[in-house]
């Protein structure tokens, strides 16, 4: 069901944990749908992401996309991190099953939410960054008889 890369990131997730007094923290998803991601960022004075940690409640794909997303933004500038899309996360993981695509969206959202928090705290505007959606992943369940 999952690619080797997904399994690798699920089994050996990178950057699990918390950061005390983070520059920014973002939590997205909801327990109702079974996915919650929280991303902590440590950003230095130059706007470079020095450290990143995550915690995720969710399926294998949710854990793997969180892990990969943290890898992709680590060491990047805030502006570069903003360009890490769900597509980039998925590609880096050699793809996801169609029903799990929303997990990669959640990872992108979590990064954006943490960046938003950082921007709010520091009173700065990051170009292209929108206020995070509180609750993504809610989709109408299709029922067919």
């Amino acid at each position: 069901m999952y690619s080797e890369k997904v399994m690798d990131h699920f089994n050996n997730p990178r950057n699990v944990g918390e950061i005390e007094n983070p520059s920014g923290v973002g939590t997205v998803g909801n327990a109702k749908c079974g996915d919650i991601m929280r991303i902590y960022l440590d950003i230095d004075g130059q706007g470079i992401i020095r450290d990143v940690k995550f915690k995720t409640f969710g399926c294998g794909a949710a854990v793997a996309t969180s892990s990969m997303a943290t890898e992709l933004v680590k060491g990047k500038t805030v502006e570069e991190a903003l360009l890490v899309t769900n597509k980039a996360v998925m590609e880096a993981l050699d793809g996801l099953p169609p029903v799990k695509v929303h997990c990669s969206l959640l990872a992108e959202e979590a990064i954006h939410a943490a960046l938003w928090d950082y921007a709010q705290k520091n009173g700065i505007v990051i170009e292209g960054l929108k206020k995070p959606v509180e609750d993504i992943g809610e989709m109408e369940e299709e029922e067919e008889y």
Partner: peptide
């Protein structure tokens, strides 16, 4: 969440099931 649990159990050779959405 259930699916994560099932994958980890599966890697130990344990077949189980969950009521999770995933």
């Amino acid at each position: 969440e259930g699916e994560s649990m099932l994958i980890l159990l599966d890697q130990l050779g344990i077949c189980a099931s969950s009521g999770s959405a995933c």
